[in-house]
Structures are given as C-alpha cells and as structure tokens.
Design a protein around this nucleic acid. Structure first.
Lengths: 212, 212
DNA sequence: GTTTAATTTAAACAGTTGTTTAATTTTGTT
DNA sequence: AACAAAATTAAACAACTGTTTAAATTAAAC
C-alpha cells in the first residue's frame, strides 16, 4: 500500500514497536523512543506528524501484505484441512515475528478512539474472515467439514489461544520449563501450533453430540 | 483474603475499574478517577498509597474467591465433561461480569514489572491449572478423555477464545448483528459458550489422526 | 561555488502527571 | 461540650507529557 518510508522512518518504527510492546503505547514517551533510536525528539513529529500517527504508520507497516498472503494461500492446490493448517501457521508466524505489536494493536484499538485505525482494522478483519469462509465452505462442499460451523468464532479460537499464550509468556516459560528463547520459540512452532491445528481440526471435522 | 475495604474504597475501585477498562491504566489519571468518583485527588493516595497500589487492590479484590469457586466445583458430583463445561461457564461469567478488569490485568501485568502482582498472578494461575488438571485426570481415569492431552494449553484455548471475542467486541457486534447489549450478552451466554465447550470437548474426547 | 531544500538540533511551550503537605472539616468517644 | 482520630480539602511540588519553533547543519541541485 504505502511504502514511502525511508530507512530512518523504519528505524524509528522498529524502536517504537519494541517499546510499545514493552511498556504500552501510553507508557512509552516520544523521549523514550528518541533516546533508544538516538534521534532528536522533534524527529518523530517531523517524520510522522504525531505520536498517534506514528502508531498508525506502525500498524499499517506491520500488517501490510497480510491480505495478499491470504489470497495466495487460497490459490494454492491443497486440501481444505491443509489450507486451514497453513493459515494457522501463517497467523502464528505473523504475530510471533512482529514481536508485541499485535498485542499493542488489540489493546490500543479498543481503548483509543482513533477512527482511522478503527476503520482500517475492521476492513482487515472482514477480509481475513472472508478468506477463512472460502476455505471452510470449500471443505464443506467436499463433504470433509461439518455443515454447522460457526465460522466467525474460528478466528478467536486460533488467535485467542496463541495470544493468551503470548500474554502469559513468563508463566508458560516457567511451568513448561522453556528456559531459553530458542526453547520457547520451538515450543510455539511445534507443540502450540499443533495444539491449535488439532483443536480446529476437531472442531471442523468431528460430529459433536449436543445434549438436550 | 483481605476484606478490609470500606464503602468508599470499594466505590473508588469501581470507578477505577471502569476507567482502566475504558482507557487503560496509563491512560487513566488519578484526576480522572477523582472526578468521576467525586472525591479529592488526595484520597487515592490516602486510601491506597499510590496508583500502583490501587491497581493491586483492584486486582486482588476482583480475583478474590476464584480459587474457592474452583475448589467447590471439584467437589461437585458431576461427570468430568460436565465439570469442564461448568468450569468454562465459570471462567466466562467471571471475566464477563468484571467488565474490563481482566483485560487490564492481562495487559498491564505483562508490561508493568510489579513483583507483587506478578507473584500473586503466578500463584493464581498455578492454582487454576492444578484444578483443571484434577478434572482432566479424573476423566482420563474413567476412560472418557484421551490420554495425550496437553493440559497447560487448554486454558489458553478457553480464555483466549473468549478474550479475543471481547477484545474485538465492536467487530463481532457488527458482523453478527448484535445491536444491543442484551443481544451481545446473550450471544456470549449461548453461542460463544457453546462454541468453547464444543471445542474443548472435541479436543478432549475425539481421536485425532496425526499425519506423518 | 552558490543556492535551495531536507534534515537535525536545542530550547521552549503549555498541560498533565503522581504525590505530598498542611490546614480544615467531619466523625466518634468520653 | 471537649477532645482525639479520621476524613477531606486546596494548593503546591517537581517531573514528565506531546508538540512547536526557529536556528543550525547537512545534502542535493544547479
């Protein structure tokens, strides 16, 4: 969409991402960012206009390309369940790589009343949901997936599970004995990803006897 | 644990909860709280010591009794799967009733480095996990649940799903057509709760064929 | 080399922040 | 009524907030 960001701007965004993730948007001052990025405090206003617009730029920069990635996935020649698995991997990888910014996004978006960002996100979520819908309906047409799936609730289970794990990183590091970053990231790539994939698969495929 | 809170203190906590949920901890000033609660700004320090200690009091006040509630559930004469369903309802009800404070908790706890709160939470989570473990092992002993369940990842799926839904309240209100608060809360009580219960049930009961 | 534009700087700005102070009012006890 | 303790107040505090300004420096264009 917008790639008119020079090296300096990207460098600032990177520092901002780290600090926002660490201390929150309101908990991070422009002076904090300036100090770490080794720039003058006026540069943020100079390049982005304001702190709010800096967040806006950061979000757009970090979510850019997601729509296209999903579109490509839809075109791949894979079984529906494989597409779901790939979609889960894609989400996890996205969120995991963009350390913390997704957490900020989810939190700030609900508290701040920035119409711009709010609208941008609604459209992004709608687009993502539509992609998921296409895959699931494909699986239903092939007779693989159950017909009575509440599609909009699939995403909360995928992303929510991963988020809750990330939000409680310290806790899970402790009880699962993931002492190094490598161990932690490996656990996400293997066990956690598998857990989410199995969860969604069970939900999509197996008949569930509903009581009364 | 600590019930030495007078009416005034509870009133302040209630206002703080609302505002923290609305604008975040850092986004809410003591003056904001004072204005809404119609008290002098010095009263917060007078009653709680500091803004940080106010948050601490709020969290302890709001999470109090959860441990006991879970302990009671364990003692009930129910089938394991029914206990799981009740546990899910209990979590959803807890989080849903204490509007917003759980969101603050999750977010602030990861950003703020308050040793006190951090330790309090770790113990709470460990206790909750132990309760869940007991129920699941009960179900496994009865031959109802699968043996290869990654128990620590069950909670992220339960709470994470609900959280993600709550965090994106506006979005789901729109796409699901939940125009009033009543409709929204009803959806949580029925569809969303059922979705989570079905998800966990599928995960606990059905055999999943693993590829390669 | 001169001129124009882009970048970077230090300083100041007007508000806001959490917290403390010391004086005042209210409440409870005798 | 007299006293002590608790509650409440307005004011001040130093530090920090996002943003702007106008001058200084660097880079680009000619």
């Amino acid at each position: 969409m917008k790639t008119d960001l020079n090296d300096k701007q990207i460098q600032i965004l990177e520092v901002a991402e780290t600090l926002f993730a660490e201390k929150g948007f309101d908990g991070t001052s422009i002076r904090d960012i300036s100090k770490v990025a080794k720039i003058n405090i006026a540069m943020v206003s100079y390049y982005f206009g304001s702190k709010d617009l800096l967040l806006e730029s950061l979000i757009k920069h970090k979510t850019g390309g997601l729509k296209e990635q999903l579109a490509n996935l839809l075109e791949e020649n894979l079984e529906p369940i494989e597409k779901i698995n790939k979609l889960i991997e894609l989400y996890i990888n996205r969120i995991n790589c963009n350390r913390g910014i997704y957490r900020i996004m989810h939190f700030e978006i609900t508290t701040k009343k920035n119409e711009n960002i709010h609208h941008y996100f609604t459209e992004l979520k709608k687009s993502n949901l539509k992609s998921l819908e296409i895959i699931i309906k494909e699986g239903q047409a092939k007779g693989i997936f159950r017909k009575d799936i509440n599609i909009p609730l699939i995403t909360p289970t995928i992303i929510g599970t991963f988020f809750h794990f990330q939000m409680n990183k310290d806790f899970y590091e402790e009880i699962l004995g993931l002492k190094t970053d490598t161990l932690y990231n490996n656990y996400i790539k293997t066990d956690l990803t598998k857990h989410i994939q199995q969860t969604i698969k069970a939900l999509l495929i197996y008949e569930i006897a509903t009581k009364d």
